[in-house]
């Protein structure tokens, strides 16, 4: 799980153009949106694309998005539980 979290941090930095931020700057439990990394709604869409492209995961229930995208911890847990084996 820790490996997945580190990989996710690197992928988010690359995909979302988070300039001057390194994986070490992102605390796994910090909020991704709002006060945390300050991501916005377009970033949320990019994360949905990332999940689909890199992990083959589609978020069917959009109401769960807020919960899943809360932090690196919640995102990694969702991928772990839903990734195609």
């Amino acid at each position: 799980m820790e490996d997945l979290k580190e990989k996710l941090k690197a992928q988010l930095i690359e995909q979302l153009n988070l300039e001057d931020i390194t994986p070490a700057d992102i605390n796994s439990s910090d909020p991704l949106f709002g006060e945390g990394l300050g991501l916005d709604s377009i970033d949320a869409l990019e994360i949905i694309v990332l999940l689909q492209k890199e992990y083959g995961i589609k978020i069917e229930d959009t109401k769960k998005g807020k919960e899943i995208f809360q932090s690196i911890d919640t995102l990694a847990a969702y991928i772990e539980a839903n990734k195609k084996s």
């Binding site: 979302l16 153009n17 377009i42 970033d43 869409l45 990019e46 694309v49 689909q52 492209k53």
Partner: peptide
């Protein structure tokens, strides 16, 4: 051709 990027689309 793959999955369109929302961040580019805007």
């Amino acid at each position: 051709s793959e999955i369109p990027s929302p961040a580019v689309f805007v």
